[in-house]
């Protein structure tokens, strides 16, 4: 081992020993009461699991729009008034016209 390495080892050892001699910092009762005051002032909401209707407004709106779209899709599908039904009807009535329409309005 080089003399330089030995010196570094010695200093490292002394620093490590110093690290282990950490003074204990006592917790003050005032600190505890201040923290509890802060904790109790926080809204209780973060501790609750949200149901759908308690979710923030943006997600509530997105969910409402999504559910509405699903209902409309289901309704058009059941009553044969959706775009699929229209496409099939046009195809059966006038195949060439349907193909032409598809080129213009794909």
């Amino acid at each position: 081992m080089k003399p330089q390495d030995e010196k570094v080892d010695k200093i490292e050892k002394a620093l490590k020993s110093a690290y282990r001699k950490n003074d204990r910092i006592r917790v003050k009762p005032e600190w505890e009461s201040e923290l509890m005051y802060h904790i109790l002032s926080l809204p209780a909401n973060p501790l609750r699991t949200y149901t759908l209707w308690e979710a923030p407004a943006v997600w509530r709106t997105a969910t409402a729009v999504g559910i509405s779209a699903l209902i409309m899709l289901l309704f058009t599908f059941v009553n044969n008034i959706g775009p699929e039904y229209e496409a099939a009807r046009l195809m059966l009535e006038d195949p060439s016209g349907f193909t032409f329409a598809q080129l213009l309005f794909p």
């Binding site: 950490n22 204990r24 910092i25 006592r26 917790v27 600190w31 505890e32």
Partner: peptide, 9 residues
């Protein structure tokens, strides 16, 4: 609290 103090210190 003392445990956390010691870690942070």
């Amino acid at each position: 609290d003392q445990y956390v103090f010691n870690i942070i210190a």
